[in-house]
């Protein structure tokens, strides 16, 4: 190859490299532009507050003049572990979780499987089951407060007077309202998941001799595994974070029997003005939620 040809090839290769580099820069800029809105919103409303709360939890935080805040290190966390009100709120929350998560998950699954069948008025049932989800927590809270008060329908038929002022019945009452309200969202997710399972699998199983129960065990549940894991985790998170229903229906009473962690956090921060301590409560809840989600994921074995 002559000198001139080699030079020409070198130039040609050089220009290809330059083109590639220009093109990848353009792609990087375009990609960043698309990601930027999310990064800005998530940074401002998610990661920023998350870091700020961690920072606040290490201080006796002065909300009016943050510069005057006093650094305490892990003192807020140490106090919290020996705070009976915190433990009361934690146990109330766990009680609420136990009362709500199984019925919401199992109930929404059964509703989804039931409504998936071809029955007359199927669309009406779907609408009826989903409709509570469009209500706000305030409407749900006020509606069920009326139903549970001494002259409401619940005590009329089941007795028990005003459930919301009963130490034993107040939390179950809040749980019932929550199940009615939250079932709808999970129902829609699981109905969509069930409808994604190919009918051919059921036909193959039928020819293989599977009973309805075996089909449920061997086809439906395994095929809905990922949405089920999602529903379980979301329900756990929602139930651990319960705030609106006890705030509206009982304000944590009677005698703190319905004070949940988030309600306690709210009272500590906005009534007691202990923002640093409330941030520490929030962080403990955050850790609990991570642990519960990871445990659910591990035991239920989602693929995605």
């Amino acid at each position: 190859m002559g000198q001139a040809n080699r030079q020409r090839d070198a130039n040609a290769n050089g220009s290809t490299l330059v083109d590639l580099s220009k093109s990848s820069t353009r792609e990087w800029i375009a990609g960043s532009a698309f990601a930027l809105p999310y990064l800005l919103i998530a940074g401002t409303f998610l990661f920023g507050p998350l870091l700020l709360a961690l920072y606040m939890s290490l201080y006796d935080w002065n909300a009016l003049d943050p510069a005057q805040s006093q650094f305490l290190g892990l003192e807020n966390y140490r106090i919290l572990l020996s705070d009976p009100d915190f433990w009361n709120a934690l146990w109330n929350t766990v009680y609420f979780v136990v009362l709500t998560v199984p019925p919401i998950v199992v109930g929404s699954l059964l509703l989804a499987l039931g409504v998936n069948r071809e029955v007359r008025g199927q669309w009406l049932l779907r609408t009826v089951f989903f409709s509570p989800y469009v209500l706000t927590v305030a409407v749900v809270g006020l509606l069920w407060t009326e139903l549970f008060n001494a002259s409401g329908l619940v005590s009329y038929y089941l007795g028990g007077g005003n459930w919301l002022t009963s130490h034993d019945l107040a939390m179950p009452a809040i749980a019932v309202a929550t199940i009615w309200w939250q079932l709808a969202f999970n129902f829609i997710i699981l109905l969509a998941a069930r409808q994604n399972v190919s009918d051919r699998l059921y036909e193959a199983a039928k020819l293989d001799g599977a009973s309805s129960w075996r089909m449920m065990r061997d086809i439906t549940i395994p095929q809905m595994q990922n949405p089920l894991v999602f529903v379980v985790i979301v329900t756990f998170v929602n139930s651990f974070q319960v705030f609106g229903q006890p705030f509206i229906m009982t304000d944590g009473g009677p005698s703190f029997s319905t004070t949940t962690i988030v309600l306690y956090l709210y009272d500590t921060a906005f009534t007691g003005r202990q923002f640093g301590y409330a941030a520490a409560v929030g962080y403990v809840l955050f850790m609990i939620l991570i642990a519960v989600s990871a445990t659910s994921y591990y035991f239920l074995g989602g693929d995605d």
Partner: peptide, 18 residues
């Protein structure tokens, strides 16, 4: 169906994915 002495191959195979 399981007592008819038949076995079927489906168009999309209908293999149990899991």
């Amino acid at each position: 169906p399981q007592d008819r002495g038949i076995a079927m191959v489906f168009q999309n195979y209908a293999l149990y994915p899991h």
